[in-house]
């Protein structure tokens, strides 16, 4: 696909995609139940609750209990979707997820909103940037970080048919919608543009920034292959290696710590299969802070210009592999 073929069909938050997806999958799969820890409005769960009040469980501000209850519901054959902020969906309840869900291989869908810096003004207490790492380290856990409203909705529906624990990560801000007419398949990377100079592997909100960067770089005559890695685990290694074997350099982009994120997974793959110059667009070992989401992305090095700079840097290294 060419860059100019990417069509923006509107602007909505990825969490709206979760809410709409949940209501839709509730209609088609009667085993789906939902739980929330006092954040129904933020998670956009109202439509599901209105349609299926008997299949919704308000747990109160008790996330550890919510994860355990979800595991129990799954044991009895339900497909529970837990809803709270990403911070409270992961770090706060890591051991509950580890023992009662992951190790016990329960069919629980951990749905996490307000991930990353774009949560904005609430600040670092709520802006988790470690959650992908935490979740991908758990054996058997599937980790999905969709990039827009449409993909989040599609993922929310798709995970009901995928047996096993899933971490679904999405966010707060209104964001361009550009995958409305594109396919979504768990574990299958989505190439968005074909290019020959550099592969940009992006996940979540940063996919849009990668596309914007590719546009700017195109004006300089640099051809970018932007691939949307919505499923960080299991990683679509074939698609990545196929692209990198052609471009011979990589930039990863994510709203997460560099440690433990998508970039780490890609580096692990490439170091073993295809050592390649690589640059990261990610938060570098830092907490966030209060502020406007777009200003925060810029301050912490996740803006469009940061993707552009990372590409320019990796292209230099591609020509001269020794870093100066």
């Amino acid at each position: 696909m060419k860059l100019q073929e990417i069509t923006v069909t509107g602007k909505k938050a990825t969490r709206d995609g979760f809410g709409d997806g949940l209501a839709a999958v509730g209609q088609t799969n009667s085993k789906v139940v939902a739980l929330c820890a006092d954040l129904v409005g933020s998670l956009k769960m109202d439509a599901f609750i209105k349609a299926f009040p008997q299949r919704f469980v308000q747990v109160g501000i008790a996330e550890a209990n919510m994860m355990g209850i979800a595991a129990g519901l799954a044991t009895a054959g339900k497909i529970p979707y837990t809803g709270t902020f990403a911070n409270f969906s992961t770090g706060r309840v890591y051991d509950q997820i580890r023992q009662s869900i992951a190790y016990s291989h329960k069919n629980v869908k951990i749905c996490a909103s307000h991930a990353g810096l774009t949560l904005g003004e609430d600040g670092a207490t709520h802006q988790i940037l470690e959650d992908i790492g935490l979740m991908k380290m758990l054996p058997g856990m599937t980790v999905i970080n969709p990039c827009d409203y449409a993909q989040t909705k599609a993922a929310t529906i798709a995970i009901a048919e995928h047996y096993g624990p899933v971490y679904l990560r999405f966010g707060r801000p209104s964001w361009p919608i550009f995958t409305t007419n594109l396919p979504f398949e768990i574990g299958k990377a989505l190439p968005l543009t074909t290019g020959s100079d550099v592969t940009i592997l992006a996940t979540g909100h940063l996919v849009w920034n990668a596309l914007e960067a590719a546009k700017r770089l195109g004006l300089e005559g640099i051809s970018c292959e932007v691939i949307n890695i919505h499923t960080i685990k299991p990683l679509d290694t074939a698609t990545i290696l196929d692209s990198v074997s052609k471009t011979r350099c990589v930039v990863t982009a994510e709203e997460h710590q560099r440690n433990g994120g998508l970039g780490d997974s890609v580096a692990q793959l490439l170091s073993r299969k295809m050592p390649t110059p690589m640059e990261y667009v990610a938060v570098n070992d830092s907490f966030g802070e209060s502020g406007d989401p777009m200003e925060l992305l810029d301050k912490y090095g996740l803006g469009v210009k940061d993707v552009v700079i990372a590409v320019q840097n990796v292209l230099k290294r591609k020509k001269s592999p020794v870093l100066v």
Binding site: V57, A64, N65, M66, M67, G68, I69, A70, A71, G72, L73, A74, T75, A76, G77, K78, P80, D95, Q96, Q99, S100
Partner: peptide, 12 residues
Amino acid sequence: QGLSVAIGAALA
């Protein structure tokens, strides 16, 4: 953790 899990099963 087990009490929460039992609650989930009881809810189901």
